[in-house]
Write a protein that binds this DNA or RNA. Structure first.
Length: 807
RNA sequence: GCUGGUGUGGAGGAAUGGUAUACUCGUUCGCCUUAAGAGCGAAUGUCCAAAAGACAUGUGGGUUCGAGUCCCACCACCAGCACCA
């Protein structure tokens, strides 16, 4: 018999599946819709990464499995081609993004095609095509209409290399997520989305979602809801008041100073004339310094004194007011109380500027001495001292007590704050959807009417960012010079484009409606297919993409445009694929290209190999040496055809047991995304089948069906050779029968003091009797050796498993 | 520092509190072949010539008849977040 040659067979089926629209459900009329979604890739010019293939294959296997459960599975794919990533690459290779997108698109679609995924090729999206971003712009207008998009001059993260602003989420440890440059602060007029209005809902809804717990935790942490109190301090010799946010008002008797951030609105009002020069100098320096630089200096605290004092109402103490850049302008009130005994940063600041330190909490170490070193700073549980009416209370009780007291006196007000900030949407770049807004001197800010969408991104030769804080589009007169849609007068178009994350925050809603041109999405289609039933993607999108998508979905729900407020019913994060113990990266030069492996072994082999590496949710370690084993595995399955004879061999009881045991195992493992053990179970069954002289068609077919989600081509090919109806991928999944899962004979382990000494095989009908088993067990020579002459104190019997003699 | 995760043979990894090391790779030996990086069979945690046995799931304790699994403390690595009051 000839060996299986994937290079000949795989393209044949890929083409046929596509021509037959095998994986395209009837989007309008499907009876059992199941939306199986993978995160769409951004098409880099290097082509599809094996990490992408890993993620896609894992998602596809689940989709194929569900399809064989009789569901109408919709598994679309698209390209997230807009954005800084693609644009930076275009600059690097000096090809215009328009041209580059055509090249990468072609390459990506070819690669995606040969991976053997069951994509619906009739419903794809490309975020950089006008027929898609038209609706991204429409979404912006919806936000604007609902008062959720607003423009504000703000201190924003500015990447001096990408020459654009970045959202907080795109700044990683003070560096640009894309290029790694140190991020600076800059004041610019920007568009924001009011995602903070949805903060509570974004937290509360989490508990009802079937998502990986770690992703939920990451989102909760990112939103960072905190209950605290704003305490208002009078400033000595002034009408001004300084409000400070704190979650630990219990320590308020330990306050010895106040610190405001350089961005605080009253900075200059609070500064006494004799300090003005120092303050100006400090503020200048702190806005230039990047966040990274501030941290880099060993967290050494810097600051200046304003000359003003606030009064602590609780005890009449004078609190010097300082300015320091460790206080963030946009969190809480932009001012903090300095409690150096019970906050490490405050301690460092107090040490730096020689400010007094008072202990007000005694921790479980019982230390009541003065706090003079960092290790003594007590931030945890404890009991109050030196705090007047709070003395002797634990900190939680004291917190409630003092909050009540401060509110009663009118000195403070309970508030909730969030770490989450409004979503900064504007980008001063070229490669994105232009924000559909027009500025008119007479009418002000005017939305582009829906009928005028899309605002097409013009082909601009000079697409590189300018560095002036304006988009390259700002120098294209034909683009920005427009008539006001409201009064018809001369007006100017917004020249910034929107953040890439907006493109990907709604693409899943577009997928079922890609053939509909006059709407962003069709209501009936959305009703049928959405929300997404299963979403699989990388954990690195835990906060960015997943949070934005949830926000957008909530907004559309509130606008009455869709009937669900959470986009992804079930989400699972896959693990990271590494290469021989190291992370794959271009700089290390160890990135695996799926093409060469597909060429050599075929997509089926690579798919199955990737899934065999380890648990899908934990990732795997790619080693070239292992792939050949999977290739041989598939070859052996092919060769099993030799063991078929025309007669249909009857299955013995052992055969049936093995078959049903495997069906059960594979079914359960795929449901739980434990692909590696599902494949191992198939290997064990193959080893069993290989030893047989003759094979029954029934078991061979069952084997192929179980394997088909992993290796769709070879199974389809054999299926055809066997003369079965096309296609195996539409065939129903094998069912296991419980009666074949039980054994007549059971092996019972004999332990003495918990150590295995022997085992016996007994008939199933006596396992219920401890006495019978004990008698049999005592009689075995090995057990007897240990039990002889000893008095047995206790006998533990676990039915059908083991018996343990305690001596 | 905070949050989450992981630690098991030479390697990737299995294991509802119940025979640790399934499955795969690698290595070694044998068979087959003109030959092969092809196929078939066998062995493979450590100590010991072997048997018997003892010891082995990052470290140290604990719970239990019995712990890779549960609890406590610690160590290492990975990922994410980080001067958030």
């Amino acid at each position: 018999m000839k060996r299986y040659i994937p290079q000949q067979v795989e393209p044949k089926w890929q083409q046929k599946w596509r021509e037959d629209k095998l994986y395209s459900p009837d989007l309008g009329n499907a009876k059992n819709p199941f939306f199986n979604l993978m995160m769409f890739p951004y098409p880099s010019a290097e082509g599809l990464h094996v990490g992408n293939m890993y993620a896609f294959t894992g998602t596809d296997i689940f989709g194929r499995f569900m399809r064989m459960q009789g569901l109408d599975v919709f598994e679309p794919i698209g390209l997230d081609g807009f954005g800084i990533h693609s644009e930076n690459y275009a600059m690097k290779v000096n090809i215009h993004p328009f041209d580059l997108s055509k090249i990468t698109e072609k390459r990506f679609l070819e690669q995606l095609n040969i991976t053997g995924n069951s994509f619906d090729w009739t419903a794809t999206v490309e975020t950089y095509k006008p027929n898609y971003y038209k609706w991204t712009q429409w979404l912006f207008l919806k936000m604007y209409e609902k008062g959720l998009a607003y423009r504000k001059k703000a201190s924003v993260n500015w990447c001096p290399s990408c020459l654009t602003v970045l959202a907080d989420e795109q700044v990683i440890a003070g560096e640009c997520e894309r290029c790694g440059s140190k991020v600076e602060q800059k004041m610019l007029e920007q568009w924001f989305f009011r995602i903070t209005d949805y903060a509570d809902r974004l937290i509360n809804n989490l508990k009802n979602l079937d998502w990986s717990e770690k992703v939920k935790i990451a989102q909760r942490n990112w939103i960072g809801k905190k209950q605290g109190i704003n305490i208002s301090y009078e400033v000595e010799g002034s009408d001004l008041k300084v409000a400070c946010f704190t979650t630990r008002p219990d320590t308020n008797f330990g306050t010895t100073f106040i610190v405001i951030g350089p961005e605080h609105p009253d900075v200059y009002k609070l500064t006494k004339p004799q300090h003005i020069n120092e303050v100006k100098e400090y503020i200048k320096l702190s806005t230039i310094a990047s966040k990274e630089e501030r941290i880099a200096e060993g967290r050494k605290k810097t600051g200046v004194f304003t000359g003003s004092y606030a009064i602590n109402n609780l005890n009449g103490e004078k609190l010097p007011i300082w300015i320091s850049d460790f206080v963030l302008g946009d969190f809480g009130t932009g001012a903090v109380v300095g409690v150096p005994g019970h906050d490490l940063r405050d301690f460092q600041f107090a040490k730096q500027f020689d400010l007094p330190i008072i202990r007000v909490v005694v921790g479980k170490d019982g230390d009541k001495t003065d706090i003079t070193s960092e290790s003594q700073v007590q931030e945890d549980e404890g009991v109050m001292i030196n705090s007047d009416f709070l003395d002797g209370m634990d900190i939680h009780k004291a917190t409630v007590k003092i909050m009540d007291y401060l509110e009663e006196k009118g000195w403070g007000k309970r508030v909730t704050t969030y770490h989450l900030r409004d979503w900064l949407i504007s980008r001063q770049r070229y490669w994105g959807p232009p924000i559909p807004i027009i500025y008119c001197n007479k009418c002000g800010t005017v939305a582009v009417p829906e009928k005028d969408l899309p605002v097409e991104l013009p082909f601009v030769e000079k697409f590189r960012p300018t560095g002036t804080g304006e988009s390259p589009l700002a120098s294209v007169e034909e683009f920005y010079k427009v008539k006001c849609p409201s009064c018809g007068g001369q007006a100017r178009r917004e020249t910034d484009v929107s953040d890439t994350f907006l493109d990907s925050a709604w693409y899943f809603i577009r997928y079922p409606s890609t053939d509909i041109e006059n709407k962003a999405f069709d209501t009936q289609r959305s009703k049928k297919w959405l929300p997404v039933d299963m979403y699989i993607g990388g954990a690195e999108h835990s906060v960015l993409h997943l949070l934005y998508s949830r926000f957008v979905t909530m907004v559309l729900f509130d606008a009455g445009l869709i009937d669900f407020e959470e986009p992804f019913t079930k989400f699972r994060a896959h693990g990271l694929l590494i290469k021989e113990g190291a992370k794959m990266s271009k700089s290390k030069g160890n990135v695996v290209n799926p093409d060469q492996h597909i060429k050599e072994y075929g997509a089926d082999t690579l798919r199955t190999y990737l899934m065999f590496l380890g648990p899908f949710d934990q990732g795997g370690d790619f080693r070239d040496s292992g792939i050949n084993g999977i290739y041989k595995f598939l070859q052996r399955i092919w060769m099993l055809q030799e063991k078929l004879d025309g007669q249909n061999e009857k299955l013995g009881i052992k055969d049936l047991k093995f078959m049903h045991k495997t069906i059960k195992k594979v079914t359960e493992d795929i449901s739980a995304l434990k692909y590696n053990t599902a494949i191992a179970a198939l290997m064990e069954w193959l080893n069993f089948l290989s030893k047989k002289q003759k094979l029954s068609k029934e078991e061979y077919q069952a084997f192929l069906l179980l394997l088909s989600p992993f290796a769709p081509h070879i199974t389809e090919e054999i299926w055809e050779v066997l003369g079965e109806n096309y296609s195996i991928h539409k065939h129903s999944w094998p069912q296991f029968v419980n009666e074949y899962l039980e054994d007549d004979e059971v092996s019972i382990v004999i332990q003495v003091n918990g150590k295995v000494r022997d085992s016996i095989k007994v008939q199933k009908d006596i396992v219920g009797s401890k006495e019978a088993i004990q008698k049999l067990a005592t009689g075995t020579p090995n057990a007897n050796k240990y039990l002889e002459g000893k008095s047995v104190k206790n006998v533990v019997y676990v039915e059908g498993r083991l018996i343990n003699f305690v001596i």
